[in-house]
Simulated assay, not measured.
Amino acid sequence: MTLQHAVAFVDHHNAQVVQFSAGADTAVEKKLHEHRHLTKQHGSSVRSEHEFFAHICDALEGIAEILVVGGHQGLADFRHYVDKHKPQTAARICDYQVVDHPSENELVALARKYFVKHDKMTGTLPVR
């Protein structure tokens, strides 16, 4: 079975990626955490953030359709990074939505509801 959809909750320090298929109850979760590099160099926090965002993009590799959710500033920064540095990932992101720390079940429910509407609008049928 292919898990063609994913929802990613992203902030500046943590990410939760849940992959799932539209017709199945199976969901696979990955949790990612930022690893801070404490150096005196200017811009080390930006470098750490970019490395963290790159790890999130790696976790999203191979997923056909992605919904990214999170707080306003975290989403804005992640979207800027993806658009600038990871255009292949940006092409697979269907939407960005601002939400407040949902549980894993709420996250999957939100994504399933989103992708049912999205697939109907694009005319694609869920793969089973």
Score class of each variant (00 low, 15 high):
residue 47 R to D: 10
residue 105 N to Y: 07
residue 53 F to T: 04
residue 106 E to K: 07
residue 80 H to D: 12
residue 28 V to C: 06
residue 108 V to M: 04
residue 128 R to V: 11
residue 104 E to R: 14
residue 68 V to M: 00
residue 112 R to P: 04
residue 55 H to D: 15
residue 101 H to M: 11
residue 98 V to A: 08
residue 74 G to Y: 00
residue 96 Y to V: 00
residue 46 V to N: 09
residue 86 K to L: 09
residue 117 K to A: 15
residue 113 K to W: 10
residue 60 L to C: 05
residue 45 S to T: 13
residue 64 A to E: 14
residue 103 S to M: 03
residue 107 L to N: 02
residue 76 A to K: 12
residue 65 E to I: 04
residue 75 L to C: 02
residue 85 H to S: 14
residue 96 Y to C: 01
residue 115 F to C: 01
residue 21 S to H: 08
residue 3 L to G: 03
residue 101 H to S: 10
residue 16 Q to H: 08
residue 63 I to Q: 01
residue 104 E to Y: 08
residue 21 S to T: 05
residue 77 D to L: 07
residue 107 L to I: 04
residue 38 L to W: 12
residue 50 H to E: 14
residue 3 L to H: 08
residue 52 F to Y: 11
residue 55 H to S: 15
residue 23 G to I: 08
residue 125 L to N: 11
residue 112 R to F: 05
residue 20 F to A: 02
residue 113 K to F: 10
residue 114 Y to G: 01
residue 93 I to E: 02
residue 25 D to T: 09
residue 102 P to R: 00
residue 101 H to N: 13
residue 90 A to W: 02
residue 2 T to Y: 11
residue 67 L to A: 02
residue 32 L to F: 05
residue 88 Q to H: 14
residue 120 K to W: 08
residue 114 Y to A: 01
residue 34 E to C: 15
residue 15 A to P: 01
residue 38 L to Y: 12
residue 85 H to T: 10
residue 13 H to N: 14
residue 85 H to M: 11
residue 49 E to W: 08
residue 78 F to S: 08
residue 3 L to Q: 09
residue 87 P to H: 01
residue 18 V to E: 00
residue 10 V to N: 00
residue 23 G to A: 12
residue 37 H to T: 15
residue 3 L to F: 08
residue 116 V to F: 10
residue 106 E to P: 05
residue 113 K to S: 14
residue 70 G to P: 06
residue 47 R to H: 13
residue 88 Q to R: 12
residue 64 A to R: 14
residue 66 I to L: 03
residue 122 T to C: 10
residue 2 T to F: 11
residue 114 Y to R: 04
residue 102 P to I: 01
residue 60 L to Y: 00
residue 118 H to Q: 06
residue 36 R to N: 11
residue 27 A to I: 06
residue 2 T to M: 11
residue 37 H to D: 15
residue 12 H to V: 07
residue 32 L to K: 04
residue 72 H to I: 08
residue 96 Y to E: 02
residue 64 A to Y: 07
residue 43 G to R: 06
residue 94 C to M: 07
residue 41 Q to I: 08
residue 23 G to S: 14
residue 49 E to G: 12
residue 39 T to G: 13
residue 11 D to N: 09
residue 27 A to D: 07
residue 123 G to S: 09
residue 118 H to A: 04
residue 13 H to T: 12
residue 60 L to F: 04
residue 52 F to G: 06
residue 7 V to S: 00
residue 78 F to G: 06
residue 9 F to G: 06
residue 50 H to Q: 15
residue 107 L to C: 04
residue 30 K to E: 13
residue 75 L to P: 00
residue 120 K to Q: 14
residue 39 T to P: 10
residue 117 K to H: 15
residue 24 A to Q: 14
residue 105 N to P: 05
residue 6 A to F: 01
residue 38 L to R: 15
residue 93 I to F: 00
residue 3 L to E: 09
residue 23 G to T: 13
residue 67 L to Y: 04
residue 44 S to V: 07
residue 24 A to T: 14
residue 47 R to L: 14
residue 70 G to F: 00
residue 57 C to M: 03
residue 36 R to A: 13
residue 122 T to Y: 07
residue 71 G to N: 10
residue 42 H to W: 09
residue 40 K to T: 13
residue 20 F to L: 04
residue 38 L to M: 13
residue 64 A to H: 11
residue 53 F to Q: 01
residue 89 T to Q: 02
residue 127 V to G: 07
residue 16 Q to W: 07
residue 87 P to K: 00
residue 78 F to R: 05
residue 74 G to F: 00
residue 57 C to N: 05
